[in-house]
Amino acid sequence: MAKVRVATMWFSGCAGCHMSLLDIDETLIDLAARIDLRNSPLTDLKAFPEDGVDVTLIEGAVANEEHLHLVRTAREKSKIIVALGDCAVTGNVPALRNGFDSNQMIQAIYGSPATSNGALPFDVVPRLLGRVSPLAEVIPVDFFVHGCPPPAGLIAKVILALLDGETPELVGSDLKFG
C-alpha cells in the first residue's frame, strides 16, 4: 500500500500543537511506517511536492503576509486540510491582538524607551496583517480539531482515521476548546 503523504505547517501559534502531535510518543514509530512525512517543521523538506500531498495539518492562525500566501498554497496542494488546535480553529491567543493597531504595537514594543536604540523592524521581515484570522476565514477547511493543544490521543485518532480513508468522528469531549 502506498504511504499517505502528510505535510504539517504552523503559522501564528506556540508550537504546542506540534508538540502534542509528538506526544503520541511510541505510536510515532508505528505511524512512521505508514506515512510519508513531507514538508514540515520536523523535516528538512521545505516545499510541497509538485503533485501535492494527501493531508496537511496546520497549526496557528493567519497573522502576516507570508501566512496568507502559504495557506493558499497549502489549500491548492492538499486534498485534505486539517485545522489543528484552537489558534487555527478560532484565532485563539494570537487573535487577542485584534483591535490593536499593528504599527502602534511595533512602536510600543521596539521604539524608545522599550529599547536603547529604538530601531523599528520594518525591513526584510514580513508585514503583519491588520487582523489575525482563523484558517476558515481565508480558505475552505475540511476538519477542525479543537483544543489548546488538542490532546495527543485525539490527534492520533484523527490521523489514523484519515490514514484508513475514513472520516474522523469527533464527539463529546473531542469538541472541547482550551
Binding site: S12, A63, E66, R97, F100, A108, I109, V124, V125, P126
Partner: peptide, 14 residues
C-alpha cells in the same frame, strides 16, 4: 551575517 526572525505576536501589548 544576519539572522532574521520573522514572526511577532505582541504579548507585551495584548
Amino acid at each position: 551575517a544576519q539572522f532574521h526572525v520573522t514572526e511577532l505576536r505582541g504579548f507585551e501589548q495584548f
